[in-house]
Design a protein around this nucleic acid. Structure first.
Lengths: 344, 344
DNA sequence: TAGCGTGCCGAAAGGCCTTTCGGAAGGTTT
DNA sequence: AAACCTTCCGAAAGGCCTTTCGGCACGCTA
């Protein structure tokens, strides 16, 4: 266990002051770069601090400042597929080392969530980011909290909260527009659980883009589960009914993987005969398929950055005003790979 | 932004004391369940606290106790594939709400790691768990830290540190033993980057188990990259040279997915003709393949729990002794699915 | 030489809580 | 009635730091 014998008790500021032969106040000022300290004195203090390997106790600082420089990330995203990029974006935005993040996983349990929420408030976090694992609205934490809250990925069901979530409608549009640009006109849509807002929103975008182009969807939107199995089954049925389909928009990369499997089994070439586009841009799935999968990326890291910036703004302004209430739909991004455009 | 107007300043203990008509000390004792307080008085204080929605400032408490009840999780695991289960295990072990975890991602950058380390120490975490993304030893943080450190997944290169890591050799053995139990005798091994200790260790286990059974590996161990592409290519070459192979141990689930693809293309039935076993038990890959993939699970959540418990022990004992220094190899687990055993 | 400004330092308060210890009030024993 | 104990409460110190503000010493001007 790494615990130095000598470091049993961390050096405190008064240790430094004594070592440097100055008062507590002067030591503090020297270390924090305040003026009112002669250069020579400052030098002396700094050297003493160095020798004692003094690190200022952030607890005491926070107590005085009334601010801890910490943020709570409250999630129910078990797998961490969404929460990790969001966390990284948040870290970026805050600036490494300036702000630290408490990560709490409520595991989809409201009681545990309350528990964690209370713990975070006791620790006097400056703000809270709530990350859901679906884009369906989730219950608000309420407005009687002493710190700002931003909802990421899953928006709050209260429109006076601040929420940031990917623009799934735009994602659906983007997918179709890309297929159209590739010259496809007979386009189908296979997606996941119809209970998910993500599935519905993407389908809306798909239909809208087709309507704009004066086209209709080939067959109905096929909803079921977010799995490869469904991708395989659905595409088999689709091809049986509509052998002339030349483009398939999938509601997730998993579904797209299944679709690719079936097309391959049926002897269809991708992208020559049928172009396939996925959703989520989950690297491990998208870059390992045959061919590699074009996909829609939700820019989760950017989402995290945005959430962090919103928190930041809210922390800065002490008037308690509520800037940017409402659900903000963030743009998504197309990542083109071999499943829609043959490689040269 | 959720910020109640009335909650501009959180209630402090002296507010409660005043409201209840008692002194600071009494209020403190009442709230913390100390004796030396008359039941009636306690009741009065509790009610006042309730009404003011008082939450004790954990900062001040920590300052006094010399303990914060927080732990730092320092990772370089970008994708979070390993860190999330470990984090969850740690949360479990600490007991939700008792201890909170600061998650810091160093992104494989030593400077950033130092930065985060310093921030964690300033915040006076009680301990640090370091999570790597490979099982190769990583540089120690050193022994001159004022808090205990446990290395998880990636062990420290210093044997006097405490490390917990999955037993990859046992995993390799387990895979082969399972194939043997399934009646396979012509077993090959396709795995990832030979620079990874994980690849080497698993290969050692594979060879050892075969040797114990008086068998030899079919062909050499095939090292390359941890990708589906490699799984596809390697198995194609393997089958060309050794058409009689009847079992393939893969170094990862990704590789196994590629292997399954190729076997399917070649008209081999899995598991009837060839049994395939993966590694990592990455649900999204293992349960979506055709057939579903038998795999070795590293019990990461258990790993996290163990790491947390070690930290706990070290925190408890104030004598600075170093219990359990060294690298602890934790048992892994076989998850049987359709790729080795035909479903009934 | 008296008066004034400037530059630097230190005493002390304050942030929020816990704990120790002294002491008041009430009841019990001799 | 005196001595004692128990029960409960409160003053104060302490944990570590920052900030305010008063004051000392020095050098300058009149």
């Amino acid at each position: 266990m790494a615990r130095a014998d000598g470091a049993a008790r961390a050096a405190t500021l008064s240790d430094v002051a004594r070592a440097a032969g100055v008062s507590l106040a002067t030591a503090s000022k020297a270390i924090n770069g305040r003026d009112q300290v002669a250069p020579a004195t400052r030098e002396r203090v700094m050297r003493a601090a160095e020798e004692l390997s003094f690190t200022p106790n952030q607890l005491a600082r926070s107590l005085i400042a009334g601010r801890t420089g910490t943020v709570g990330l409250l999630t129910s995203d078990l797998e961490g597929r969404f929460v990790i990029p969001i966390l990284m974006g948040a870290e970026d935005a805050f600036g490494a080392g300036q702000v630290n993040v408490f990560l709490c996983d409520a595991r989809g349990d409201a009681i545990r969530e309350q528990h964690h929420l209370k713990a975070l408030l006791n620790r006097r976090v400056d703000g809270i980011i709530v990350v859901g694992r679906q884009t369906d609205p989730r219950p608000s934490l309420g407005h009687d909290l002493p710190v700002p809250v931003v909802y990421a990925y899953a928006p709050s069901d209260d429109p006076t909260d601040v929420s940031v979530t990917p623009d799934n409608v735009a994602g659906g549009r983007l997918a179709v527009e890309h297929l159209l640009a590739c010259g496809r006109t007979r386009i189908a849509h296979i997606t996941g659980d119809p209970e998910y807002a993500a599935a519905q929103d993407r389908a809306i975008g798909v239909r809208a883009a087709l309507a704009d182009a004066g086209l209709e969807l080939v067959g109905d939107v096929r909803f079921s589960t977010w799995s490869e199995h469904w991708g395989r089954d659905a595409s088999a049925m689709l091809l049986a009914q509509h052998p002339d389909v030349d483009g398939i928009v999938c509601g997730s990369d998993q579904i797209a993987r299944g679709v690719l499997d079936t097309l391959r089994d049926l002897g269809k070439r991708v992208p020559e005969d049928v172009a396939v586009i996925g959703y989520d841009n989950w690297e491990v799935l998208a870059t390992n398929s045959r061919p590699e999968l074009t996909s829609i990326d939700a820019n989760l890291q950017q989402l995290g950055r945005t959430a962090a910036m919103r928190i930041f703004e809210a922390i800065e302004r002490t008037d308690g005003a509520e800037p940017g209430a409402g659900v903000h739909h963030l743009p998504v991004r197309l990542v083109i790979r071999g499943s829609t455009v043959a490689r040269r």
